[in-house]
Amino acid sequence: MELHGATALVTGVGIDNLGHHLVRQLIERGATRVYAAARRPENVHVDEAEIIRLDLTDAASIEGAARAAADVDILINNAATFAGDLNFIDADLDRVRRLFETNFYGTLRMVQAFTPILEHNGGGAILNVLSAAAWSHLDGVDVYGATKAAGWRMTESLRHELAPRGIQVSSLLFGMAATPTLRAYADAVAGPGVMDAMMTPPAEIARIALDGIEAGRSQILGDRLAVDARAALADDPEPVVITSPRVVAHGVS
Rank of each mutant, 00 (worst) to 15 (best):
D235P: 00
E119Y: 06
L233G: 12
G222W: 08
I126N: 05
E50I: 07
L172W: 08
G166I: 07
T181Y: 00
V46A: 06
Y185K: 08
P201Y: 13
L108W: 13
E101A: 15
T32C: 08
L138T: 13
G166F: 10
L118N: 03
G123N: 14
A8K: 05
P239Q: 06
P164M: 07
R29E: 14
G30W: 12
Y105W: 15
L18V: 11
I167M: 03
G212K: 11
L130V: 04
P245T: 12
A249G: 05
A163K: 15
R40Y: 08
R97P: 00
R159W: 02
L138I: 09
E119I: 01
L210I: 11
P245K: 13
K148V: 02
P201T: 11
A215R: 14
G145Y: 01
E214W: 09
R109C: 01
D85G: 14
A8Y: 02
H160P: 01
V189P: 01
E119V: 13
P245H: 12
I51S: 09
L56D: 04
G191M: 13
A209I: 09
P237F: 13
A49F: 05
R207I: 03
V169K: 13
A188I: 00
L221Q: 06
V44G: 07
I27N: 07
L26E: 03
D142G: 07
P237D: 13
A91E: 04
A49R: 07
P164E: 11
K148L: 07
L3P: 03
A68V: 02
G124Y: 04
L130M: 08
P116D: 11
M198V: 01
H20A: 04
L18G: 11
